[in-house]
């Protein structure tokens, strides 16, 4: 899976905007949106919010978790705990990047938020590597990792899957006869 595909999925998340135009309710396959009235907040998907924002037709209200104090709290918790802490949004990294890139004038303290989210991300990736290493070195066959987001899984997927494949084959060497008689079709 490609990172841009994960970003595409993240664009389905809803975000609150304050439009400065009026439009009746619009009917889309994914659901009805609107009606849009100037000054009245309305929930729309991120892709539409960014499109309207780029045409300067709305103001984006940042999600509640995109706030310096809350993120600082999260960072401390993430550093303290050994396990993964629940994240406010399954697409926190993608949403931060999208909203800060296109609507940084609507988000207070954008730079601090960017740094905080990057800190959280780095802490979580370090934990992910640590758990992958202990998973391999203890010869486990399955593991449960709660609260991981798609983007985080995506960065390590190819490497971890290939390593586990190799390890499985090297392990099946230990029991002679078990790997015989397996043929792969090409």
């Amino acid at each position: 899976m490609d990172s841009s595909e994960v970003e595409f999925l993240a664009e389905k998340e809803t975000v609150k905007i304050i439009p400065n135009f009026s439009l009746d309710r619009i009917y889309l396959i994914g659901g009805d949106l609107g009606p849009f009235n100037p000054g009245l907040p309305v929930d729309v998907p991120v892709w539409l919010a960014l499109n309207l924002k780029q045409r300067q037709k709305c103001r984006i209200v940042p999600p509640a978790w995109m706030d310096v104090e809350k993120l600082e709290e999260m960072r401390e918790l993430e550093r303290k705990e050994d396990t993964f802490t629940p994240v406010p949004s399954p697409y926190y990294m993608e949403l931060t990047k999208l909203l800060l890139n296109y609507a940084s004038d609507n988000i207070p303290k954008a730079d601090e938020i960017r740094t905080l989210v990057k800190d959280i991300w780095d802490t979580r990736i370090a934990k992910l590597r640590l758990s992958a290493d202990s998973f391999i070195s203890q010869l486990e066959a399955h593991a449960k990792l709660d609260n991981l987001t798609l983007m985080e899984i995506n960065t390590i997927r190819a490497f971890l899957l290939d390593s586990l494949n190799c390890m499985y084959k090297l392990r099946s060497n230990l029991q002679p006869g078990s790997s015989k008689g397996q043929f792969t079709d090409y």
Binding site: R129, A132, D133, I136, S137, L139, T155, I156, F159, S163, C166, M167, L170, R171, N173, L174
Partner: peptide, 17 residues
């Protein structure tokens, strides 16, 4: 063979990532 692979795994992962 298995132990060698496991022992070298962490270093390989960190350097590649």
């Amino acid at each position: 063979l298995l132990q060698t692979f496991i022992g070298r795994f962490r270093r390989n992962m960190d350097s590649s990532q």
